[in-house]
Design a protein around this nucleic acid. Structure first.
Length: 581
RNA sequence: GCCUCUUUAGCUCAACGGCAGAGCAGCGGUAUCGUAAACCGUCGAUGUCAGUUCAAUUCUGACAAGAGGCUCCA
């Protein structure tokens, strides 16, 4: 596995060099910046000088690459000195910046040359590009800031991919096309789940009846599961005084708040998070150690000023509803509470059949320890607690060094959408700072006041993003317990209507979401329509069913079961709903 | 916010510097049918605002909305 990954990386990194050469030949004056191999292919950044390129130029560039390729029989490597390197790349300001940086870090400076194109480069190439690099395709262009910083110049990035064989390349491209069909924005429209209306505003999704039914079903189920685990639910308003966020520090540190508004003589904001509200509830009376852990939960809508270019379907919105909770705990309870949170999270993921996820544990940046508040001992313990918890739960995890918030480390679950982009769902953050800011304390066994620790937890993350991911995960074919319409009854002819209506009433009373499709269309058309709507079950009713008091069942995959007894059918449905499969 | 691209009917797509065309959906009929599309009729559109032009949906610009992307560092 390791070896094939290495080879794929070499292949793609080599291909990025080929792309650089082709673009530089076609567009004199352009400079290549960096061109790494990435998970699904590679990219190469360019400063295009006075030129600009778009996706319509890709075929031309690809043709140039194929023209150059036969002359690339091997890469020549050389180690060069700082002075040599600066001389060799004097025309390219990006390479010069890299040379100076690498040299400053004491790294070796390496160049490669496949024959006619000298580039600064780390190692990792194929042996014979002319033979191995044949199965590539340029995919898209994009703007990308030099080194990812908005302060730098925006470069032109070209994305492409490369595989060892044409078959693998073709399979990848087909798979990408298939993935687009699962896009939650497309399915959301086709299945009438949610709406993004320009009149309401970008990032402010509206849930249609079917979408809201699914969301509410998840919400009700999760609320029950949390109550079983000792969470107490609250409700807090969507607007609060700015001063509240000044006290929490968000006003100073958090950049996604909407502009404040004035009410009477005070300044108010739409709430971007619920923590300070829940802290008010905690502080409403003196707390005893016997009250802890105190678990306050809220399915709370918050408002965040996400950048216009970042807003994306349901995955990044400006009005989102978190399944938020704040756990007020003693420091000795950290490990066990994190265990409980991970247990619940894994139970949720298992219920929905999520398998491809990993945990990211965000820790301090060892280079700048002064950035963090809360005491070294606390941090050491907390980071260890998170890693230990991940290990205890056999979670695939990695450390995000330097990614912790200033107030504490955290553990997040990362999942991928249909197009392979990674999103954070679950988050569990330890916090030692807000207890200081808000004096969140309790009286211990000895009658003395101690500071609580706070765990900020959102198990789904937000209902919105989770729903978006869920739509793509199921490709719109929701399991029975979530399906907005669980069963459609299709009478073959008008004379079967009465039987069907009675049956619908019966099943509805038993708790099944059932509809009757008696539109003036042939049965085949109605089967097709409901299949396209991904209704889990259709019940076909004709003379035979009416006479035998039974039902003919067809599922959305086309599997038919004829002559099913009504009582058997009903209990099968109810059982499937109960088991959430 | 920035880069590139996109915007024609509810949906999917066509055409064109000179009357905007179809399928599906909707609506009105006819047909009442055995497991993924019955038939006939009918309604309906060039994102917004400017500019160029005899003429703009088409060309140009601004705005709006949408898509992909913005360190998985030589």
């Amino acid at each position: 596995m390791e070896n094939t990954d290495d080879y794929l990386n070499s292949l793609r990194h080599s291909c990025a060099h080929l792309l650089a050469k082709a673009v530089l030949e076609l567009y004199p004056g352009a400079h290549n910046a960096i061109g790494p191999s990435i998970e699904q292919g590679f990219y190469q950044d360019f400063d295009m000088g006075s030129h600009s390129i778009s996706e319509s130029d890709l075929p031309k560039i690809e043709a140039k690459m194929r023209e150059i390729l036969p002359s690339w029989t091997h890469f020549d490597f050389n180690e060069v000195t700082f002075e040599e390197a600066k001389k060799l790349f004097k025309h390219n300001p990006y390479k010069i910046e890299l040379i100076e940086e690498f040299s400053g870090e004491g790294k070796k400076l390496l160049t490669n040359n496949p024959g006619n194109f000298l580039d600064l480069c780390k190692m990792g190439h194929v042996e014979n590009p002319s033979k191995e690099l044949r199965h590539f395709k340029l995919l898209s262009t994009a703007g990308a800031y030099w080194r990812g910083s908005e302060k730098n110049k925006m470069l032109t990035r070209i994305y492409g991919t490369c595989f060892p064989s044409q078959k693998e390349l073709d399979e990848y491209l087909v798979q990408q096309e298939e993935a687009k069909k699962r896009d939650h924005r497309k399915l959301g429209k086709e299945l009438e789940l949610f709406l993004l209306s320009p009149s309401v505003g970008p990032g402010f999704p509206l849930y249609m009846p079917k979408g809201f039914l699914i969301r509410r079903t998840i919400e009700q189920w999760l609320t029950k599961e949390k109550e079983k685990r000792g969470f107490q639910f609250v409700w807090t308003p969507h607007v609060a005084k700015s001063d509240l966020y000044k006290q929490s520090g968000h006003w100073q540190k958090y950049d996604a708040m909407f502009s404040p508004m004035k009410i009477d003589d005070d300044e108010y904001v739409l709430k971007p998070m619920n923590c300070p509200h829940h802290f008010q509830i905690y502080n409403e009376k003196p707390r005893s150690y016997r009250d802890l852990p105190l678990r306050i939960a809220e399915n709370a809508t918050v408002y965040r000023f996400e950048k216009a270019g970042e807003v994306n379907g349901l995955l990044r919105v400006r009005a989102l509803t978190q399944d938020d909770s704040h756990l007020f705990i003693r420091h000795t309870q950290i490990a066990s509470e994190i265990d409980n949170i991970l247990d619940l999270t894994l139970m949720i993921y298992e219920t929905f059949g999520f398998k491809d996820f990993k945990a990211r544990i965000s820790t301090r940046d060892p280079k700048s320890p002064d950035k963090y508040m809360g005491g070294t001992k606390n941090w050491d313990d907390a980071e260890k607690a998170l890693v230990d918890a991940a290990k205890r739960h056999d979670l695939p995890h990695f450390i995000g060094e330097g990614e912790a918030a200033f107030y504490g480390p955290k553990i997040d679950m990362m999942v991928k959408d249909a197009l392979g982009r990674e999103w954070q769902l679950t988050t569990c953050q330890l916090d030692f700072v807000q207890p200081e800011n808000f004096n969140l304390s309790y009286i211990n066994e000895e009658g003395k006041s101690e500071k609580a620790a706070v765990l900020h937890v959102a198990n789904l993350g937000s209902f919105d993003r989770f729903f978006g991911i869920l739509i793509e995960h199921y490709g719109g074919a929701f399991p029975l317990w979530l399906a907005p319409v669980q069963l459609v009854l299709i009478p073959i002819a008008e004379r079967h209507n009465e039987y069907v209506q009675n049956l619908a009433k019966l099943l509805r009373e038993a708790g099944v979401r059932v509809e009757v499709d008696n539109k003036n269309e042939p049965m085949q058309a109605r089967i097709r329509n409901n299949t396209l709507q991904k209704v889990p079950y259709m019940g076909i009713i004709g003379d035979k069913e009416v006479n035998d008091a039974c039902i003919s069942v067809r599922n959305r995959s086309g599997v038919e079961t004829k002559g099913v007894t009504l009582s058997v059918f009903q209990s099968q449905l109810l059982e499937e709903i109960e088991h959430k499969v």
